[in-house]
Computed example of a mutant assay.
Amino acid sequence: MFKSLLKRKDKIVSTEAAPDIRSKRPNAGEIRDSGLNETLFLSPLPVYTGQTQSSRRNFSEVNDTFLELGGSNWGTVEQGKILAAGLWFPIFLAFIMPSLVIAYGVIFYPENFSDPWRELFGFIQVSISVSLLSFLPIGAYVYGMISSVYSSAKTYPVRFNRQRREVCYVDSKTRRVLIVPWESVVAWVSNTQGVTSYGATRQYTFGMGLEDEEQDKVQFLLLPQPSDAHALGMWTSIRNYMEDGQLVDAPNPMLKALGLTPSGDRLKPYEGLHTFEIEREDARAMGSLDEGGDELTPEQREHYGYSKKSRWPLRRWYMWRVLSFWKMPYMLAEWAHRKGRPTLPEQVQTWSEALPPEQWAKPSAALVKANQMVKTAMDKKGATFVEACKAAGLHG
């Protein structure tokens, strides 16, 4: 399957169980099949992939010295909106539905509703008691959100130091620091197929293995992904940062299409109250409200190539914000961000300090040679990633 993918800007895939990388050392471009599971190894030797990078939101911090994987609160705003939708159910059941039923009765069967206000208050009392049951699943959802935030506040991100060409992992329970050479990291993308009562399913995972020589074991990092492209894109972002210094700051193509220039807030690696303002700005841009040409007539705007202005995107945006309790989801995201994460050990903070350029570690000769051969095979000869790695002698 992988042989038909990865053909310059193509895809790949992921796994739930970590592969055996101790007894049988993998190589970049190698494919292993095990039952319904297929694994493509991308390293050791982090060679060129030629693929598209993933979104910056996978990373909690990116600077000239290190990149952090994990520790971000992306998705919290969406969770807050789902919570708001859930809260409307008991409100509808307790107040809106009784009001609609009584209003309907008063209009079409007035003889049966001589005292509508008394009927309404009685109906509301009953509906409120019934609606209280809906707070059980809502409470479970809120508990899950809060637990996730507190769990994240205890989990250390993985740091990739491009100046030292090393990777740092901190165990959340023991606070033990593991630092390994970048070129020794084993990375893979896997897909696992399964069958349920609803049909065939496929799960994707991006994984990394950091070998702990002192304890004679491997520290595995398994990150479920929505697709093979997401999994490969995450590795490509990390690899391009470590090898080429790319900061994963490329703006969303949609923003470019809308003519929006990314600002400091748009490049923040987390969600919060600033996300509310960004979404409002996007809604205004959708209606071309800030495009200019205010002094022109509609005919002149069309003649000079301006888009037709419309307030409906912004009106719809305000309507949905009201239904999602205004800034409530964004306040939850801000709280999740401020809750923070554990303070990194002093050893890691020292390790993360910038070095003078003359002290920066250099890629190995083996990697430089392999990179050139893989890049030439993919870009000039049209080879797939697997074929290019084989041509470079990385696997049989």
Rank of each mutant, 00 (worst) to 15 (best):
F2C: 01
I12W: 03
S14G: 15
S14K: 02
T15R: 07
D20S: 14
R25Y: 07
N27I: 00
A28F: 07
D33S: 10
S43G: 15
T49V: 05
S72P: 02
V77A: 06
I82M: 14
G86T: 05
F92A: 15
P110I: 08
S127Q: 12
L133D: 01
I138Y: 08
A140K: 11
Y141S: 02
S147D: 12
D171R: 10
R176I: 06
W182R: 07
V186K: 03
S190T: 10
T192M: 07
V195L: 15
Y198I: 02
Y204G: 00
G207D: 03
L210S: 02
F220T: 09
L223V: 12
P224C: 07
Q225G: 05
E243N: 07
P253T: 02
L258I: 03
K268W: 01
H274Y: 05
E277R: 09
R280N: 04
E281K: 09
E281D: 14
M286E: 14
G287P: 07
D290P: 08
E291K: 10
Q300E: 15
Y306R: 06
S307R: 15
P313Y: 12
W317C: 07
F325W: 13
M328K: 03
P329S: 10
R341M: 09
A354Q: 08
S364L: 08
A365H: 04
A388W: 07
G393P: 02
G393V: 07
H395Q: 12
H395V: 13
